[in-house]
Design a protein around this nucleic acid. Structure first.
Length: 574
RNA sequence: CGGGGUGUACCUCAACCUGGUAGAGGGCCGGCUUUGGGUGCCGGCUGUUGCAGGUUCAAAUCCUGCCACCCCGACCA
């Protein structure tokens, strides 16, 4: 492709509303343009990358025994009404009416739709297992789209669903998909971890997320230094910490005047005690009820964990007014002793002997507080796991990461099939419920995710496997010799099946080099009169600082070798 | 939905506080210049100042309402 013929609008300055690295670079390098919040157009370069990613996923899904289908995105309401998700999805569902005023929506995910297909077409154990996938645009009216392609309201997803005669067989299908995911992400050159995750709205018995490790990621993870254990913070576990606090008998409770010092930090300083001796007491609204959640002074409550422990959908911190009503004290002086209502205490907080808590009275704290003696509570793991906590599996230290969720695989069990009548006849002629799994990859999100991991201060550094072009020829000057050399290289590489972008613009060299770095094509070939005098051109991998002089006649073979390595699936890196 | 912020040219932003005919840089077009890392100079192009009302002789500027977008939280690929 010739640059002059391509729509490739690069920007010198970053649009002000772009904050994430990938968003800025995708806009500046001319891959995408914004149409509305969380809605983007893909320009030619963007489409090329998207198609490369889709193709890798397609190949690996097929290799994993899955078969491609294409379900509608415009859906009659009845299927989601049948599963109950017409209501569950709430405002996240894009709803519309047809001319007959019938209810429709745009598909946010397709469990119901595929289950409907399967319940109609699968009758016998002989028809199972089946794994089907599609690559399709999904629509979710997200409360907060963000980060360019990282979180959109319209996005491209690969969703797959597997159907089995038993849990055991479903586990096999799940493993096949896990392998397909690993292979896909490996080929894209991503550094990721498989982590345990909350199965959330999907329901079901097991799930794992594929988290791409980047500082800018919105998910928080912990991973063990030594073993394979890794988990999203919302489900992460850690070993119980050793007890802290005074030895021997705990003296009886004493009320201490702590004027104006409400925060743990301030009280710790005031009383000259370590924060771990304190019980941090927070009042939450959970299912319309006020609940006191207690963690150690140096820990934080994790609201998802708290909600799960309380068996409610969500919790939020009570207002200052509610706190005052519940405790009779200002915020900062709550405590479990004498609290009228449910008290839930983190496992590690219960291990604090002779603790300090708020007195439920403004400007007062209690010292020598002892769980069991001075107050009763339910125990649960409700705090956020921290770096340095110990792995629940092997006991080594845990490390913290941030990640972007690139994929998620679930064992659904019979969550949808039971509800929607997905049944088959077994060998004995007896009716059984189909067991299923579902598997998602955020395809358009991956475009941004790869950039988050592959860029430098000058621009994108595409892995060869998904680059929009493999080679960019920077043509310097417009003499007949240069033009002839460029033509020769271009046609030679294209004959070998290599995609080439030729910068044939009338621009100064500096402009072309800057744009080449920005766009991030992995192999740059510079053709200029200087080099041609000695029969040479320059070859510079985007990931390396300096170019290499190469004989014009040898260039084709060198480039073909580099590209072939990747073609054979030996890794994404150039 | 809660909290914070911003809407002025294609982009980045100034002018707003203190009302008086809307500007800079980049970009784009033309000319000369330059030609291996965003060359330099000259000339030109581009606006219902997000929308609707209100106050005023006069509104980008003050007031009210609405809309859009961004950021921080609860959701997710």
């Amino acid at each position: 492709m010739r640059y002059r013929n391509s729509l490739l609008p690069t920007l010198k300055e970053a649009p002000a509303d772009a904050t994430s690295v990938s968003h800025v670079l995708l806009l500046r390098a001319g891959f995408i343009r914004r149409m509305g919040a969380g809605i983007y157009s893909f320009l030619p370069l963007g489409v090329r990358v998207l198609k490369k990613i889709e193709q890798i996923i397609r190949e690996e899904m097929n290799r994993g025994g899955a078969e491609e289908v294409l379900l509608p995105a415009l859906l009659p309401a009845e299927y989601f009404q049948e599963s109950g998700r017409w209501d569950v999805f709430g405002d996240t569902l894009f709803r519309l009416k047809d001319r007959k005023r019938g209810d429709y929506h745009l598909g946010p995910t397709h469990e119901e739709i595929i289950t409907d297909l399967i319940r109609r077409e699968v009758k016998s154990y002989r028809d199972l297992p089946k794994t089907l996938y599609q690559i399709q645009t999904k629509f979710r009216d997200e409360p907060r789209p963000r980060g360019g392609l990282l979180r959109c309201r319209e996005f491209i997803m690969k969703d797959a669903y597997s159907f089995h005669v038993s849990e055991e067989d479903a586990r096999k299908g799940y493993e096949a998909m896990r392998l397909a995911y690993r292979r896909s992400f490996d080929r894209m050159g991503l550094d990721y971890r498989m982590v345990q995750a909350d199965s959330g709205a999907m329901g079901g018995s097991g799930s794992a997320e594929f988290q791409v490790l980047v500082q800018s990621g919105e998910d928080q993870l912990v991973a063990c230094k030594d073993c394979d254990y890794a988990a999203n913070l919302e489900v992460a576990k850690s070993r119980t910490l050793p007890p802290v606090g005074a030895e021997g008998d705990v003296p009886s409770i004493e009320r201490v005047h702590t004027p104006g010092v409400g925060s743990i930090e301030a009280v710790a300083k005031f009383l000259k005690l370590a924060p771990e001796r304190f019980l941090k007491s927070l009042i939450y609204v959970a299912g319309g009820e006020l609940v006191l959640a207690v963690v150690r002074g140096d820990h934080e409550v994790h609201e998802v964990k708290l909600a799960r422990a309380l068996r409610v959908d969500e919790v939020h911190l009570a207002s200052a007014a509610d706190v005052a009503k519940a405790t009779g004290a200002a915020v900062g002086f709550a405590g479990p002793v004498g609290f009228k209502g449910k008290v839930i205490v983190d496992r590690d907080a219960a291990n604090v002997r002779d603790a300090v808590t708020g007195a439920n009275e403004t400007d007062y704290h209690l010292v020598h507080v002892q769980i069991g003696r001075d107050y009763q509570a339910d125990l649960a793991e409700i705090r956020s796991v921290l770096a340095g906590d110990l792995c629940p599996v092997c006991g080594a230290e845990l490390e913290s990461y941030r990640g972007i969720e690139a994929g998620h695989i679930f064992l659904l069990g019979t969550r949808y099939t039971a509800q929607m009548g997905g049944k088959y006849l077994d060998e004995a002629g007896k009716e059984q419920t189909i067991v299923s799994g579902c598997y998602g990859i955020g395809v358009s999100r991956l475009v941004a995710t790869v950039i988050e991991q592959h860029h430098d201060q000058n621009g994108i550094r595409w892995p060869l496997s998904i680059a929009p072009y493999q080679v960019q020829i920077v043509q310097l000057g417009d003499s007949p010799e240069v033009r002839a050399a460029v033509n020769e290289i271009e046609s030679g590489l294209e004959r070998a099946g290599i995609e080439v972008l030729v910068d044939d613009r009338e621009e100064r060299p500096g402009v072309k080099f800057k744009d080449a770095d920005l766009v991030g094509v992995p192999l740059r070939v510079t053709v200029g009169e200087k080099g041609l005098k000695t029969g040479q051109v320059e070859l510079k991998p985007r990931s390396e600082p300096d170019p290499k002089k190469v004989e014009l006649v040898a260039l084709g073979a060198i480039v073909e070798t580099l590209v072939a390595r990747v073609r054979e699936g030996l890794g994404g890196r150039a």
